[in-house]
Design a protein around this nucleic acid. Structure first.
Lengths: 211, 211
DNA sequence: AACCAATCGTTACAATCTTCACGATTAAAT
DNA sequence: ATTTAATCGTGAAGATTGTAACGATTGGTT
């Protein structure tokens, strides 16, 4: 399979979202310039990204919104992503209700929590299970990635459970670094670091750039 | 002021957090190798990052944990960050209770919500105000950055209110791109994109790297 | 005192990512 | 039919980021 960089892929998803919005508004074509205005990226970068996947734009016109949407999707969005969630506190519940997942091909198929009062309930249609059922539920639901939204103290232990169950991808919201076996991908989403680096950005540089 | 790259700064915050943990455990020294094992970054990168700030390591011993902590902090963490939050739904409440903020120098000083039933309440010690009071509360609280945790539809309008109030930094959790004046920094935290790109990562490349 | 091993700091190198410059293409106007 | 203007696609240059190699320093060992 041809390999595209992480950054290109992340931008491709952004383009797809913008395209979905324009398709809904019955817009037939969109130029790299317009995509640039919306996304904050440069028009050249957008053309370059898209051209990595293939030639699909029409000179003088731009890109056919539906065609480009389908084109990008074929490369990056082959199937629905099924995820399981660990930790149904505020953050976990926020994730279960996250609006971006409704339209995207992301489905949270099960949740787990230590609190026995939560077990057996459903939130936004997703059932909450006890920790002892993790392995069984993961296999039965054919989950592909896991989300850790527990307190930091529990995150490493849960990462172990997750990898033992065979999952190869983890999104970690706990402010901790996880040790995982080779072959497992981790994305750390660290709110503190986002805050602090934004703050640093504001204070250090007066001539601003887009993030 | 000397300028460091965003990536270096983000890693510096990560080092600080690791150091805090080790300082709590009374560990006196730490090597770049140990930092590497914990963080997943290479030891060379760590030494290089740290050396950008200055010479502070001791050959054959490593870095004095407290000294390095203080050293990094002096460069990147000059003062407490005061933030206001827009939208007190699940995500907003998760942010208000986010454990990473307790120890870090991040303080959420006020929250806003359209829902009049929420206005006047407090969550985790943070008062919730009505939207009409935004400007007044921002100025009185001397907030520096804003967090958008509202539905997407509202995010652009709120970004306008925020920038009119003079804030220069926005963290946007809504799956939308914001148009802001020059001089305002935006960090988009887009959960869909994180999920999808992790999923792509798992499927495309079999020879894995750390993220 | 001399040696050894661990560790930092740094220069040079490599890889990745972005921007630039410009030719190619095509719809519309005349 | 010709011209024009908008837009794409892309090879080359430039910028940024990460890696490797290795000398310099120092605590411990003999």
């Amino acid at each position: 399979m041809k390999k595209f960089s992480n950054k290109t892929i992340a931008r491709a998803f952004l383009y797809i979202r913008i395209l979905d919005d324009r398709i809904q508004n019955k817009q037939k074509y969109i130029s790299s310039q317009e995509l640039s205005d919306i996304s904050g990226l440069t028009d050249v970068q957008i053309r370059k990204d898209i051209s990595l996947f293939g030639k699909v734009g029409k000179p003088r016109v731009g890109y056919d919104t539906k065609e480009l949407r389908g084109f990008l999707e074929a490369f990056v969005l082959k199937s629905t992503v099924r995820a399981v969630l660990f930790g149904v506190g505020n953050l976990g519940q926020a994730i279960l209700k996250y609006p971006g997942f409704q339209t995207e091909k992301i489905k949270i198929v099960a949740a787990f929590d230590k609190d026995s009062r939560k077990v057996g309930k459903k939130i936004n249609g997703v059932a909450i299970y006890a920790m002892k059922d993790v392995s069984r539920v993961i296999h039965r639901s054919r989950a592909q990635i896991a989300i850790i939204a527990t307190p930091s103290e529990a995150s490493q232990e849960i990462a172990g459970i997750i990898t033992k169950s065979g999952l190869k991808g983890i999104i970690n919201f706990a402010p901790s670094s996880l040790v995982v076996p080779k072959g497992v991908s981790v994305r750390n989403i660290d709110l503190s670091i986002e805050f602090l680096s934004l703050f640093y950005d504001i204070h250090s540089s007066r001539k601003r750039r887009k993030s």
